[in-house]
Amino acid sequence: MSDSLPNTHWSDGVHALFRAHRINIVSFVPDGGMKRLLELCERDAAIHTVTLTTEQEGIALAAGAFLGGTRAAVLMQSSGVGNCVNMLSLPRVCNMPLLLLVTMRGEWGEFNPWQVPMGSGTQVVLEASGVITYRVQTPQDVVPTVDAAIEFAFASRQRVAVLLAQKLIGAKNFVRGDQ
């Protein structure tokens, strides 16, 4: 899918924001919707990518990065938000910045019913855990929203998540199976 995308894909803009805002560590449990962004980060010598076994590792990693003076972002699918809940107490109680990029599943055109419970609860769970959420529905809103989220997270030391709607990412095609 990514092969047919133009260079103006939102992933390129987000990657450029990571560079401009000195985000040097990007950790993730991958999702098909962020394939291109992950490839851009992995190709970039200025960005250290960390593959996680579970999303909560990324929350603790970002906390350690902050202690050491480096900015981190954590990328995950909406199902991974549920894996983070208790670990989100760490940046909250320590007044640390946290930037999450979450690609949504279990909503627009979802084929897999097992994605629906966590997808339906993602925003509520994040807000209950003290994370401010920005939801993006259209490609042109991604870059300005992520830009604002980065500024808010790091300048004001807030926990901020940008939720990229499934309508924006595109529903996963299980028949073709290339995501």
């Binding site: 560590i25 603790a60 990693l61 906390a63 350690g64 990065a65 902050f66 202690l67 050491g68 981190a72």
Partner: peptide
């Protein structure tokens, strides 16, 4: 993982 974050930074 907090240790890893500090170690990388």
């Amino acid at each position: 993982m907090v240790g890893l974050g500090i170690a990388l930074a």
